[in-house]
Amino acid sequence: MTRILLVEDNEMNRDMLSRRLARKGFEVLLAIDGEQAVTLTLAERPDVVLLDMNLPLKDGWTVAREIRADARGRQVPIIALTAHAMSDDRARALAAGCDDYETKPLDFARLLGKIAALAGARGAPPP
């Protein structure tokens, strides 16, 4: 089963997305701030990290850089999620080490496609 780490500080969005992913058969781990995100990624090595960029304690860009800086996190696929929709946000996310980028409100089908592509490339079986 594909394990997804969802990093989201907004309670409602965390609840919504985690439940929708669970309904699609993913195992969902949750982190509510940047520090938890780094710790959990390195410890659990999920198949995909869905990373909100506006986070308390440590923002998403810092989180992505720290994960990439550690040998354990170098291979973990990260999809950046952000409610910012400015044109340079995508470039900034990719520069920080993210593999892909999605804006909120999310297109859930497209997100699933991206998760499948990234998790599949890494050899994890689709759900």
């Binding site: 907004n10 409602m12 969005n13 919504m16 506006n54 952000t82 409610a83 910012h84 929709a85 400015m86 804006t103 909120k104 409100p105 999310l106």
Partner: peptide
């Protein structure tokens, strides 16, 4: 934009 998109995402 961020503030409007966050609740819209939930909705």
């Amino acid at each position: 934009s961020h503030e409007l998109r966050t609740p819209l995402n939930a909705i």
